[in-house]
Computed example of a mutant assay.
Amino acid sequence: MSAHRLVQLLDEVAAGDRVPYLGAGVAAAAGDAQPASPEALCAAIEARVRAPKRARGNLWSVAQFVESRRFRKTLETIVQAAFAERPAPGPLHRWLVRARPPLIVDAWYDSQILDAARTEGAGGWGWVQGVSRQGQWREIWTRAYDATGALVGEAPDPGWETLIYKPHGVIREGHSFLMSDSDYVEVLTEIDIQSPIPEEVQARRAGRPFLFLGCRFDDQMLRIFARQIAKRSGEGHAAVIAGELTRMERKFLDELGIERLDLPLSAVSDAIGAPA
C-alpha cells in the first residue's frame, strides 16, 4: 500500500500539484563523493579545524567557531574543498527536471539538481538561493540565477516554468551559503513573517502540499526551515522516511500533519522506473 501511495504522490508532483522538497538524503543516494548530511559536513570541517568540545558535532556551531577564529574565507575554503567533487545527478534529480514541476525545494548545499536541470531540463528554468549577509551592508536574503547561471538579481523571474529554491545556498565557487550561527541569526528573526522566502516561492507553494524526500527532522534548524517554507501551502503533506523516528521528528510530523511513508529512498527510484 505504501508503494502504491508513493506512486500517487509522485504523480501529483509530475502534474504540478505537489511540491517536492529534497533533503540531504537525496544527495547521499546519488553518491558519496560529497558530504550528504549535516553530521558528515561537520566531520569534514572538524577534520581540518579542532573545534571546542561544546561545539563538536553541531554543524552550525562548528561553522561559527571557524568563522569567528579563522575568518569566513577559511570556512569557505574548507567546505568548497569538501564539495569539490561533483557526482552526476541521481535518478530522482533527473526525473524531477524532466517532469518540470513549478517549484522544487532543495534544502542541501550540493549542485546536483542544478546540474540535472542544465543537462536534461528544457529552457525556462532558474534558481533562487539563500545568501549569507557576511560583508553585506544592505538587507539581502537571496540571489536568483537563470538557466545559464547568470545572476538576474535578488528575485526569480515569475515567467520561469520551473523554479528551484535552495534556501541554504550552494557550496561552490562564486556562490554563497548559510551555515554559521551568525548567517542564520537575522534569517531566523525574520523567517516567521516570511521575509527571507522569495515572493515567487510563496506564490508557487500556495494551494500545493509538499512531498519531503531524503529529509530528516532531527535537527532544529532543519525543522524551522521546513516549517516556514511549507507555511501557507496546501494541506496534506507527505514524507518518505524509513526506520525509527526521534521524539522531535514524531512531534514535527504531527504538528504539520505530514503523512509518513516508512519506505527507503530507493523506493522512489523504483516508483519512477529508474535504477536505484
Score class of each variant (00 low, 15 high):
Ser132Ile: 05
Phe252Val: 00
Arg223Pro: 05
Glu235Asp: 12
Pro264Trp: 01
Gly123Ser: 15
Ala144Ile: 01
Ser269Tyr: 03
Tyr109Met: 09
Ile241Cys: 15
Pro196Gln: 06
Gly123Leu: 15
Glu249Ser: 04
Val170Glu: 14
Ala271Ile: 03
Ala147Met: 12
Gln202Ser: 10
Ala36Tyr: 09
Arg204Phe: 13
Thr246Glu: 15
Gly126Val: 07
Leu265Glu: 01
Ala3Ile: 06
Ala203Arg: 14
Val268Tyr: 05
Gln80Trp: 13
Gly135Met: 10
Ile258Asp: 09
Met1Asp: 06
Ala14Cys: 11
Phe217Trp: 10
Glu12Thr: 01
Arg50Lys: 10
Gln8Val: 02
Pro196Val: 00
Ser269Arg: 02
Trp160Glu: 00
Phe225Tyr: 09
Phe225Ala: 08
Pro198Gln: 01
Ala88Leu: 15
Gly23Glu: 02
Ile272Lys: 05
Leu9Arg: 06
Val26Asp: 12
Arg69Ala: 11
Ala30Gln: 06
Phe225Asp: 02
Val201Pro: 01
Val128Ala: 13
Glu120Arg: 12
Ser269Phe: 03
Glu255Asn: 05
Gly214Gln: 06
Tyr145Thr: 00
Ala14Ser: 12
Ala84Pro: 03
Asp254Cys: 07
Glu12Phe: 11
Ile193Asp: 14
Val268Asp: 07
Gln34Asn: 09
Ala84Leu: 14
Thr119Leu: 15
Trp127Cys: 12
Arg205His: 05
Asp157Cys: 02
Ala276His: 03
Leu114Asn: 06
Ala27Phe: 02
Ala267Ser: 07
Ala99Trp: 03
Leu114Trp: 13
Phe212Trp: 11
Ile113Val: 15
Ser233Gln: 10
Pro167Met: 01
Trp137His: 09
Tyr145Ala: 06
Gly135His: 03
Glu249His: 06
Arg205Phe: 10
Asp11Val: 05
Leu75Thr: 01
Pro35Arg: 04
Leu59Val: 02
Val131Met: 14
Glu186Asn: 07
Leu9Glu: 07
Gln202Phe: 09
Gly31Trp: 12
Glu120Tyr: 15
Val152Arg: 13
Gly207Tyr: 02
Val13Thr: 04
Glu46Val: 03
Tyr21Phe: 15
His237Lys: 00
Arg232His: 11
Phe217Ser: 06
Asp32Arg: 13
Gln129Lys: 12
Asp110Met: 09
Ala84Cys: 08
Ala30Cys: 08
Ala150Arg: 11
Arg94Val: 08
Met221Tyr: 09
Thr148Asn: 13
Trp125Phe: 14
Lys73Met: 13
Ala30Val: 01
Val131Lys: 09
Glu39Trp: 12
Arg204Leu: 09
Gly159Gln: 08
Lys53Thr: 03
Ile197Arg: 12
Arg118Thr: 05
Val26Glu: 13
Ile224Leu: 15
Glu139Arg: 12
Arg232Gln: 11
Glu259Pro: 02
Met248Lys: 10
Glu244Ser: 10
Val26Lys: 02
Thr162Glu: 02
Tyr165Thr: 00
Arg133Pro: 05
Asp192Trp: 13
Ala203Tyr: 08
Gly124Pro: 11
Glu249Thr: 00
Val128Gly: 13
Ala150Glu: 06
Ala155Gln: 08
Thr119Pro: 11
Trp160Lys: 04
Gln8Phe: 10
Leu22Thr: 00
Gly16Val: 02
